[in-house]
């Protein structure tokens, strides 16, 4: 068995308008099943994926908040967001559904540099 890789999954797309946010979570859960180290990084409109109080049943979609709540059961604890993006949307920590770590641009570049594999959806 090869040693686990540090996999960084990145997204800058808003949820529901495309399948990107859902794909990100599906890939994350699958990587966890294969016992890889997974981190999520949300940039630009991607931070909107974590807004609390989503109710997408009204547009016949599954609730991403529900899947996001289960990330810790899959041992996915590293959830990073671009602090500038959150500020750009006029949002704060408290409006997000799960705990996250805010990163500066420099920290983001280091995170990418230190990951074995980076996937963007």
């Amino acid at each position: 068995m090869n040693s686990p890789k540090n996999i960084l999954l990145m997204s800058r797309r808003a949820p529901y308008g495309s399948s990107a946010a859902r794909d990100l979570l599906d890939i994350a859960l699958t990587c966890s099943v294969f016992e890889q180290n997974v981190a999520l990084l949300l940039l630009d409109d991607g931070v909107l994926q974590l807004l609390a109080n989503q109710d997408p049943q009204v547009i016949q979609q599954k609730n991403l908040n529900s899947l996001q709540s289960s990330l810790s059961l899959y041992d996915i604890e590293k959830i990073y967001i671009d602090a500038d993006a959150l500020e750009h949307h006029g949002l704060s920590h408290s409006e997000l559904h799960i705990p996250v770590t805010l990163l500066t641009k420099i920290e983001i570049s280091q995170l990418i540099a230190n990951s074995d594999i980076v996937l963007t959806v």
Binding site: V33, N63, S69, S70, L73, Y74, D75
Partner: peptide, 15 residues
């Protein structure tokens, strides 16, 4: 009901 999917083995054990 809570997480809207069927768990794989690891999260099932944890839950």
């Amino acid at each position: 009901q809570h997480y809207e999917h069927s768990p794989a083995m690891r999260p099932l054990c944890k839950a």
